[in-house]
Design a protein around this nucleic acid. Sequence first.
DNA 1: ACCTGAACACCGTTCAAGT
DNA 2: ACCTGAACACCGTTCAAGT
Lengths: 207, 207
Amino acid sequence: MESRRQEILDAALAIADEKGLEAVSMRAVAERAGVTAMALYPHVASKADLLDSMVGRLLTELVPHAEPGQDWRQRLRSLARAGRKLAHQHPWGATLLFSRPSVTPDAAGVVDLFYTLLLDAGVPPAQVPRLERLVSTLILGFAASEVGGRFGPGDLDPRERRGMLRGQPLPGHKALVRWLEAPVNWDAEFEADVDDLVRLIEAAAGR
Amino acid sequence: MESRRQEILDAALAIADEKGLEAVSMRAVAERAGVTAMALYPHVASKADLLDSMVGRLLTELVPHAEPGQDWRQRLRSLARAGRKLAHQHPWGATLLFSRPSVTPDAAGVVDLFYTLLLDAGVPPAQVPRLERLVSTLILGFAASEVGGRFGPGDLDPRERRGMLRGQPLPGHKALVRWLEAPVNWDAEFEADVDDLVRLIEAAAGR
DNA sequence: ACCTGAACACCGTTCAAGT
DNA sequence: ACCTGAACACCGTTCAAGT
């Protein structure tokens, strides 16, 4: 019934994965779908509508990753890992998610997995919506920082790394030189962050 | 010496604040600076370079907000609040920060405030860089979610809010209807999140 | 109902030309 | 050194016209 719209969406997703979000133009999508740009408009209201549908697709891919039989800790971990992995596979998605409401039919399925997980952990219901936002914001923020380049190498020169910036001292950097030299293991850092989230949830549950 | 570049930057910032990031075109910036678009290029290498300088300006505005005399908890709170306030004043900045390395001369000053704060809290040096990223990612992610619309109203219909989506049940939503009806106090939620960060830092320090 | 071609009002950037 | 005007290769979207 809506197969034409699906084909357009597939074309847009393929372009975004292959060449990045900025390559997703109505003209490029249309060409890939074998049609002119203006032929898209009966099926998608606007480019914004198309982008919304793209993030929707991404979110539905996440739903199968919290098998109900498991411990809440295991479900949190597998959801977090799946979210991060998805961001690595579709870097355009992480950035886009910040500019779209999370209270959307496509997102509700994922949000519900977090809700049930937090309830199972024993978090008081009144605290669950806030903690869901805290947890999902940190996971999304971490993934967005990785794929967006915020956690990237940067361009500090050796002097700056050692704690001197434009004549001003950087005492924190200076004290940490030894620990700032080693390359970061991002997999391990993500797991440590999820461990901290687990402890934070346990603390919220135990009161 | 570089006053021409500063004028261009001022024009770009004014346009972004008034009409949003998408209104910042080389032509619009040039017109505001009283010059043609091509006259910008001797002063800014590209549009990307211009955007980088814009986030740089934002970050330097943050530095004065952690007075060294105070308790680390107070400094964390005032830095967090200042960061969130800045995102509200310049919504374009939050989104942009995810796509720029945080290890940049302009950012180093802010990062250093977090480093010293965490060291003062007694966090083991080996843990400081990770916790700095965790803390700044949550603060930035929260602010980006607010100004980007991720925390916005969304478009769930009443049936969906009560726990039924496309024939599938949403058990978490169903259990939480009572707590999902009330409007969210975002100021209070942000403070609660910062409280959780404080506890997390205390836990990292005490071991 | 669905698609096309031309057009409108834009983009970032290059390049030859001016002062 | 700094600026201009024209041009190139693009954008999203509207609109009249075709089938």
